[in-house]
Design a protein around this nucleic acid. Sequence first.
DNA 1: ACATTTACCATACGGATGTATGTGTATTAC
DNA 2: GTAATACACATACATCCGTATGGTAAATGT
Lengths: 207, 207
Amino acid sequence: MATELTAIQNNILEYIVEHWNNAGMPPTLAEIADHFGYKNRATVQQHLKALEKKGYIKRNPKLARGIELVAEEDIMQVKPLFGEVAAGNPLAIYQDAIDTVELPNVVKMPRNSFLLRVKGDSLKDAYIFSGDIVIVHPDILPKDGQIVVAVLDDSAVVKRFFKKEDVIELHSENPEYEPIIVKRNYISFKVVGVVIGIYRSMETYRN
Amino acid sequence: MATELTAIQNNILEYIVEHWNNAGMPPTLAEIADHFGYKNRATVQQHLKALEKKGYIKRNPKLARGIELVAEEDIMQVKPLFGEVAAGNPLAIYQDAIDTVELPNVVKMPRNSFLLRVKGDSLKDAYIFSGDIVIVHPDILPKDGQIVVAVLDDSAVVKRFFKKEDVIELHSENPEYEPIIVKRNYISFKVVGVVIGIYRSMETYRN
DNA sequence: ACATTTACCATACGGATGTATGTGTATTAC
DNA sequence: GTAATACACATACATCCGTATGGTAAATGT
């Protein structure tokens, strides 16, 4: 049943997954044809028939956007990972993705949110461990006590956020680390986003 | 901008979210009309117009299934919670949902997967804590060492799975608890599913 | 009284969408 | 050689889908 796919069929399957992750819904035949430069939907239809025959997708006849994903693609979605952060020794957040993470499709990301991998144990008392993926939502004003990702002098930290009268304090959960205190409106400081959740995959053993 | 919704508008909005979570795509006007018994799509269209005017949805004109969710519904999805499990003292899994969980939309659930809330500290050495939500995927054959949810004599446990020659062993991570050993093909035993991930919300403080 | 809002229906139009059928070409298998 | 497969295009059709317009009824506000 697990017949091999041709290069084109593979590309189309990937596009379906990509479209589904980005737009939140499967593409139409016309959208697929557009993306690959086909002048005709019937061409796409043949490839979809092949994909269905080989068991990679299911189709709801007559229904708009009636493509359903089967197997792995239905379980995991690949999301870009934009960097690593630690609460003790700041690490970098990159403009481009440095890696990808397979998220179970139970996790739909809010628009504009992104992923960072935690390194180190400075947040272990907040039950966040090395290797965990944190989901960061920008465009949210942090409230006191929330865990935020902030950039300070070009390096990134994950800390608990507290706003005082004249300063902003970033606390580690781990008592080994001293709080970071920043003057308000300090130029090289910016809160990147609020950590709205963590995710940990169970696929492999943990060390 | 945050105008209040009428009861009907609220129902329709809820249905859109529900359909989007279940089918992986927004509903069409016809599907909404069907669900509420409307004989006409134009009725639905008026309600959608109202929802758009009040800022709860956005619409992609002329596009099939072009409804986009805004605000909270775009960030959080409500998923049913089917019970609670502990590794030490087994708890019940119910047929019906006992509660709901707001998951960030980063988490798309695999079809058929469901959520359970962990109670107790028997998995604390696996870095799973009381209150965490585990994502359980049925229809997967568990491999040695994976964390599974199993039903034994009508009560549910979360343990590490090991298949031996004649028996199946379920280990706790916490040394305080003895492993459970079950004969193969024991009638009242069944592996419900494999834990493919955990999720923890950062919305509130943790105690 | 009058206007406004909410709620539902009927009809109709144009374009989108999935599907079926046929034509043609290149590549591979035997 | 010939059959089978993969690949792309053209045409055509029924239905789906979003949209526009108009009508009816009830509730509410002024």
